Amino acid sequence: MASDSVRIDAWVWAVRLAKTRSQATAACRAGHVRLNDSTAKASQSVRVGDEVKVRLHGFDRVYRVTGLATRRGSATEAARYFDDLTPPPPPRVERPAAIVRDRGAGRPTKRERREIDRLRGREAE
């Protein structure tokens, strides 16, 4: 790689964060790509050491650029160009077993509804 910077939309596409180059450009235009904590335009240059935040499928992912890719390669090759700094998701909270009512028992009484709410973690205010 002769240059010391690459367009951010090309880099996002080359490291397989977006399926197509046009999707990478659209993500930049929509504000889903941030470069060093500021919204990135598609033509903005990315350099080694920069931090790129990308919102993918409703989740924010954080990457540090370790190499500049201009061509799209295999996934193992693409993984060489970034470090994933995304924090792990919070642990899932186990919920109590579902409340089972007999079929045909009708609507729950006020007392039963309060017990159901208490079991589901929705205490009365």
Rank of each mutant, 00 (worst) to 15 (best):
M1E: 14
M1Q: 14
A2Q: 11
S5F: 06
V6L: 07
R7F: 08
R7A: 05
A10N: 05
W11A: 00
W11E: 00
V12P: 01
W13Y: 05
V15P: 00
V15H: 01
V15D: 02
L17E: 01
K19L: 09
K19A: 07
T20R: 15
R21S: 04
R21E: 05
Q23R: 03
A24Q: 02
A24E: 00
T25Q: 04
T25V: 06
A26E: 10
V33S: 01
D37Q: 10
S38F: 02
S38R: 01
K41P: 00
K41C: 03
Q44I: 05
V46A: 05
R47P: 02
V48N: 13
D50Y: 12
E51M: 04
V52M: 08
V54F: 10
V54R: 03
L56N: 09
L56V: 14
L56Q: 09
L56F: 12
H57F: 10
G58C: 07
R64Q: 14
T70P: 02
R71Y: 03
R72A: 01
G73W: 04
T76E: 09
A78D: 04
A78T: 06
A79L: 11
R80C: 02
Y81C: 03
D83A: 12
L85K: 15
T86M: 06
R92P: 08
V93M: 14
R95V: 12
R95S: 12
A97I: 05
A98V: 12
I99A: 09
I99G: 05
I99T: 11
V100G: 11
D102S: 10
G104V: 10
R107I: 11
R111G: 02
R111K: 08
R114H: 03
E115R: 06
D117H: 03
R118Q: 15
L119N: 11
R120G: 03
R120N: 09
